[in-house]
């Protein structure tokens, strides 16, 4: 007899639990306001990444095309996988001494793991993270970037 009642109790509790589950999906079915999908290419205009978003490593330049990089290559030393190559040159300084300046700050985006050690350890805060995240390209050589802009020079106060 106990078995008999258990049989029906099982059916009842089982069906009840199924209905509870269906109420969850049913609730979402009838409340389209809860849709969380972001329609990506359409919302490009309004899509704003967070300030600290690590999209790529950039070297900020001011309006006079000055950057802050001295070419000390600490970022190159700290990079765990060789994404950064600093090629520096020596030119004659104003007082006749040789001065080290940056020639090319090469950044391999394709190898970067965004560990943020370069940005963190840069003594002059010359590097920063950019917000650009659409990095898909057809040619991977495009991913190798030269961060200092052509014709740019170091900010006077640092040098």
């Amino acid at each position: 007899m106990k078995e008999f009642f258990k049989y029906f109790a099982d059916i009842f509790t089982g069906v009840r639990s199924l209905l509870i589950g269906m109420s969850v999906t049913g609730k979402y079915f009838f409340s389209p306001g809860q849709i969380v999908t972001q329609q990506y290419p359409e919302n490009r205009k309004t899509l704003k990444m967070y300030d600290r978003f690590k999209g790529e490593v950039i070297m900020p330049h001011d309006e006079n095309n000055h950057h802050r990089c001295t070419g000390c290559a600490i970022c190159e030393l700290n990079c765990p996988n060789g994404s950064i190559e600093v090629i520096s040159a020596r030119i004659d300084g104003p007082d006749g001494k040789k001065v080290r300046i940056i020639d090319q700050h090469i950044y391999h985006l394709g190898m970067c793991t965004f560990c943020s050690l370069c940005v963190k350890t840069c003594p002059e805060n010359a590097l920063a993270f950019g917000q650009e995240f659409e990095h898909a390209v057809f040619d991977r050589t495009v991913l190798t970037k030269i961060l200092n802009q052509p014709g740019s020079s170091i900010l006077k106060e640092i040098a």
């Binding site: 990444m49 967070y50 600290r52 978003f53 690590k54 965004f114 943020s116 963190k120």
Partner: peptide, 23 residues
């Protein structure tokens, strides 16, 4: 993402502290 800058592989801790302060 707001605090560490990354969604998945944050590398947020450094020996001795944090990469940067919380947002």
């Amino acid at each position: 993402e707001e605090t560490t800058g990354a969604r998945f592989l944050q590398s947020y801790y450094t020996p001795g502290g944090l990469l940067w302060d919380i947002h």
